[in-house]
Design a binder for these strands. Structure first.
Lengths: 342, 342
DNA sequence: TTGGGGTATGGAAGCGTTTTCTTTCAGAAA
DNA sequence: TTTCTGAAAGAAAACGCTTCCATACCCCAA
């Protein structure tokens, strides 16, 4: 029926070279003459050849696959993180196997050494607290492990300075008149995982405001699940506490979106009665005119992937820590709307 | 450093048999003496051996791995679905590779035939609309495909009768006095995927109410994202439209949870001023006293897994459709609280 | 006793790659 | 011219399995 896929032998035969040469072309080995390489590439294109990844794994003794353990809470964040990771890994012909911690019970399974997650060449882990749950804070594997958006002194880490982000938020919002408010993200899974990202952002904010002489009352912090609707409820809550103008630091862009929706519903002018600063820097914030602390999420993922590849290739140095900083992006949500002269 | 994984040769040596025999044990070949088989199994356990799926793939053409393509929206639902699937597959020593469609761009990648998703022995797909996006509504693979929580005439399907669920909700709620309300789930990704699950439930509800002579005004349907806070906003919205008692059909348990939270905050008595019916039958609904339409999610996943295994093993019949029905579970949220006699 | 037919098993071949080992050949140094 | 060096490329040996083939053995009928 379905005719068999062409193999390396057929390519070799058509290009009149040995299979070794075809393999070298496949792996970008330097010692192939450009002319030969082109002949091989032409033969591949001609036959519609693509290498059998399984054979490659068997022969190479490596799986050419990397595990990525992630909580699936903030989909856009993790999607961008994955994007950055993938960008680097696919360049090197590596695949990514995803292990989302859908629930506490799945989490436990991933902690066992028999888990499929450890059958790959290396592990990317982006759950801060995961390490805390492990005996000795070490993953049950000899394979390299790199943390993304998390930090541990035991492993290479690429992480965001969330506290600094909160401080930057404070510095920016403190200049405006009106009371200060904050929305902190807190998810179910976060407790199990001891994920303190949401907390760090708000702590940084509180710290920055204190330094600026405008301390943040605890009643002005609304704790919410991670959803746009949470932002709407937060604004409703704030309206019960005080009168505009408000200066609101939302711990995530998605929450800020909810605030925007609710402000519109309530007829509050964004940038004047409600000044709003998000966190993440997701692409859609531009269209909404939302000021935000843009995180270099993709770069962070890419850097983690690079470190992991180095480890897989035998690098033995002591754990490296790569810190990333958010950037303040000011848009109309923290600036009065320009008034166009007629 | 990291000692290599044991191979079939080491198992054979330890069990004092040939590698052929070990392989036969792995594949449940009938002609192995029970005594020999036990010796081999003991050796495997002893060495912590597990077969290399890539080698199996190269040698035998099967990888004993199945791909599961899923949107990551409703985590609890998919977690339970996965649970059901895993239960069957692990029994047969199959592994599961997850492919969450985190975003439209990832979706596109999964539609390409080169994707890792198609390198396995078969595909489980639980995204209704995915098929619609494919040329000719066919996945680019010769391997068997089975749909879960979705239906297509082209493939084996295991799906829930959501419309019937809506009708059952109507039948149950119509008996009570007071106005009828509904909360419909609608997610971003749903549009791309043409996922009509939320819609079907509400349509069934509307249909059932019409038959019961209590038609549902369109204004009484609140469309929400999939989050607890959406339920809270829904109840706030309903309170602006009318006075209790309310009869509310929430398109998902998670939304019902938000309604419960908001009702408590507003001091409304559940089961009297607010009668509430969820959809899903998640375990936690029992503790909350939430009436719900329980879906046999695990069984649906298990059945899909079984069908896929049959296909992988060569079954060639025409596409089969397995329909599942929700069950009404009545709890205190649709019954007045019992008054205990002193 | 001999032969036939099954069952249990060991070992070799083969899957499509990577990697190592050789061989070939061109060009630089003597 | 001869020798040496290194680059290019073919051939062969893994990689860890499945599967096929051959052999050894046992039981039963002739």
């Amino acid at each position: 029926m379905a005719k068999r896929k062409p193999t390396i032998h057929e390519v070799a035969h058509l290009a009149k070279v040995g299979i070794g040469t075809v393999s070298r072309v496949l792996n970008n080995h330097p010692s192939v003459r450009p002319e030969t390489r082109n002949r091989v590439l032409a033969a591949m294109a001609n036959l519609g050849y693509s290498p059998n990844p399984h054979a490659r794994r068997v022969a190479g003794g490596r799986s050419y696959t990397v595990s990525f353990v992630l909580p699936v809470i903030s989909t856009e964040f993790y999607n961008r993180l994955l994007e950055g990771i993938e960008h680097i890994l696919t360049e090197e012909r590596y695949e990514i196997a995803l292990f989302p911690i859908l629930s506490p019970s799945r989490l436990e399974r991933y902690l066992e050494s028999r888990s499929l997650a450890y059958q790959t060449d290396g592990l990317l882990v982006s759950s801060q607290g995961l390490a805390h749950l492990l005996p000795d804070q070490k993953f049950p594997t000899e394979r390299p492990v790199v943390l993304v958006d998390a930090y541990s002194p035991r492993y290479d880490s690429a992480f965001m300075d969330n506290r600094l982000g909160g401080q930057m938020a404070a510095l920016h919002l403190a200049q405006f008149p009106g009371a200060m408010f904050a929305i902190q993200v807190q998810e179910e899974l976060d407790k199990v995982l001891k994920n303190t990202v949401g907390q760090e952002r708000i702590e940084g904010f509180r710290e920055g405001l204190r330094k600026a002489g405008k301390p943040l009352p605890s009643a002005h912090v609304f704790v919410s699940r991670f959803s746009a609707e949470g932002g709407r409820l937060a604004l409703q809550h704030f309206l019960r506490l005080a009168k505009p103008p408000f200066n609101i630091f939302a711990g995530a862009d998605l929450l800020a979106l909810g605030v925007l929706e609710e402000a519109e519903r309530q007829g509050l002018a964004i940038g004047e009665q409600v000044r709003l600063l998000g966190f993440d820097g997701h692409p859609w914030t531009a269209a909404k005119g939302l000021s935000t602390l843009a995180q270099p999420i993709e770069e962070m993922g890419a850097e983690a992937a690079r470190m992991l590849l180095e480890r897989i290739r035998g690098y033995k140095g002591s754990p490296r820590a790569r810190r990333f900083e958010p950037t303040l992006v000011v848009r109309s949500s923290t600036q009065p709307h320009p008034v166009y002269a007629g």
